[in-house]
């Protein structure tokens, strides 16, 4: 959350770089650290493994200077992208004021992007942060590599609600400052909005992410359209068949699923043994990746239910 210290006349905001492993989150911070004058930034702190993979987070404080009489600071964090570090990702997201989602543009990495994005929405939810309101910028990184997905397809798949996006090659610094500009402006606009008692609350800096709405069981026509677009894009890339008329409605909590094409125990992962049947179920890959995290828990419950039933029967 934005910290406003009237005693020191300081505003401090937290921005988190999120994304799959090796997508370039730490590289973004390294470039910013390397290019900014020393008086405008602090030390870059990396809590990393011996192999230089982020273990907990990277941290870089940026001092923008006086804005409207307040010394304005941004605290840039990255999360560990590797799948098994989810507990730490969730901790780093706590109190976040703005997010940069760093996606790897390579075609082979699209599933990881989708899974990471779904994981981000889930972690925001668990931290009780409204993903519709949080300033969010998409950075499509590694645009210089061969076999990258087109910008149009990335937008359709990851960013159907049209949040701001940038193309980048973080290792060379291309797009890194552009991303910084966009997210910092959004965060400060959001801060201004929050502190402005007179102005009614708008819907946020841009349209809400409809994928998140769909994940939450939202059924607005906008979200349905956007999810369908994402589904269509990824299905065509994989050569999957789409099933007409399948609706998307997923409960992320333990509440029972009340609608949708299948009960939760039938949920399959796109890279699991039953992957071939997954696309035909009609759920978008992002939704399916989200479901994956609840699948194991549900399977355990199912075993206990059966055991309990067997014992009751005796």
């Amino acid at each position: 959350m934005v910290s406003i210290n009237y005693a020191f006349r300081e505003i401090s905001c937290k921005i988190v770089y999120y994304g799959p492993g090796l997508s370039g989150k730490t590289t973004n911070l390294q470039y910013v650290h390397g290019r900014m004058p020393a008086k405008s930034r602090g030390d870059l702190i990396s809590l990393a493994t011996e192999a230089d993979r982020t273990l907990y987070f990277d941290f870089l404080p940026i001092h923008v200077g006086d804005i409207g009489g307040f010394a304005t600071k941004f605290q840039l964090y990255t999360v560990p992208g590797q799948v098994f570090y989810n507990a730490t990702r969730k901790l780093v997201l706590r109190g976040v004021d703005g997010i940069v989602f760093v996606a790897d543009s390579q075609a082979a990495k699209m599933d990881e992007n989708i899974e990471s994005l779904a994981n981000m929405y889930e972690n925001l939810r668990e931290n009780e942060i409204d993903s519709d309101q949080i300033p969010l910028v998409f950075q499509y990184n590694k645009r210089d590599l061969p076999d990258v997905v087109s910008l149009d397809e990335l937008e359709k798949t990851l960013n159907p609600s049209g949040r701001p996006c940038t193309e980048a090659c973080a290792v060379d610094g291309l797009g890194v400052f552009d991303t910084m500009k966009r997210i910092t402006k959004l965060v400060l606009e959001d801060t201004k909005r929050r502190t402005s008692a007179a102005s009614p609350t708008p819907a946020g800096p841009s349209a809400p992410p409809v994928v998140a709405a769909a994940l939450a069981g939202g059924s607005t026509s906008e979200s349905a359209t956007a999810v369908a677009a994402a589904k269509s894009a990824i299905a065509s890339r994989h050569g999957w068949e789409e099933k007409e008329g399948a609706s998307v409605s997923v409960a992320l909590s333990d509440a029972p699923v009340t609608s949708g094409p299948f009960p939760r125990r039938d949920i399959v992962a796109s890279d699991g043994p039953a992957a071939a049947s997954a696309p035909a179920s009609g759920a978008s890959p992002i939704v399916m990746a989200q479901q994956r995290s609840t699948r194991v828990r549900h399977r355990h419950r199912s075993i206990w239910d059966r055991l309990f039933g067997w014992l009751s029967g005796r």
Binding site: M1, V2, S3, I4, A7, T191, R194, T195
Partner: peptide, 9 residues
């Protein structure tokens, strides 16, 4: 309130 932590002099 609305995600801000405010501290006064």
């Amino acid at each position: 309130s609305s995600g801000t932590f405010v501290i006064h002099q």
